[in-house]
Amino acid sequence: MWQWLYRLGSPKLFYDMTTGFLPWLTIVTYFLLIVGLVWGLGFVPPDYQMGDNFRIAYIHIPMSVGAMGIYAMMACMAAMHMIWNIKLADLVARSCAALGATYCALSLVTGSLWGKPTWGTYWIWDARLTSMLILLFVFIAIMALRSAYDSENSGSKAASVLTLVGVVNLPIIHYSVVWWNTLHQGDSILGVSSQSANPPEVWSPAFFVGLGLIGFFFQALIRRTRNEILLHERRSQWVQQLLTSKQLQE
């Protein structure tokens, strides 16, 4: 297993493996997204209280969960980079930061668009909104720290340290604001914690969109990472060969 992990750490192998895999992932992603969105936005009956507004949740909830998941993944990559000095892990973490910030920002935007008709305000200092906003700040801080360094190697290490500090701190931040102020409802679309569980036809599209957005994240992550690999390995022989063969084809 370790052998396999170690080999996957080679940028060239990652690049070669994803070349065949990426188109399939992209097709599946768009299939899931289209099915989930058309179903969720077009065919699920409107909510008796919120009307059509609740459909925003089909995008909002996967975005929020995704942003947190992306941070977790970035933290694992940062740890791998710090402990085993795997360069590829850092390239993945670097790609995670921008995508995580995007998911986080979109989660905040969709949430506030949902909040206006439902709660009557775009923004409220509620625990979940606040901790999502802070997560966005942390993503931005990590990107800012990385770009502040002239030396790329030091920048990567510093960003990894900050990412790991964030892992310890983010749960504390989350609970500090939960105890501080809570208005946000609990999980509702899956109806796990609420008393009136939603029927399957309401939550099924959410699974499609959720899986679709996870797939979208991974295909975007792989594309970004491939670009980073090409940029960082541009002096290596295999990249030179790859580029010249591409040029010959054209």
């Binding site: 802070i134 700040f137 942390v138 801080a141 800012a144 502040a148 900050l162 964030g166 931040i173 604001v177």
Partner: peptide, 25 residues
Amino acid sequence: LTVGLKRSGVLLAVLVLPLSIPVLV
């Protein structure tokens, strides 16, 4: 994290302020 950089003032704020929120709260 920022001592090696030439100008670290604003960056320090961006890094540290979000992490200080629990103490503030």
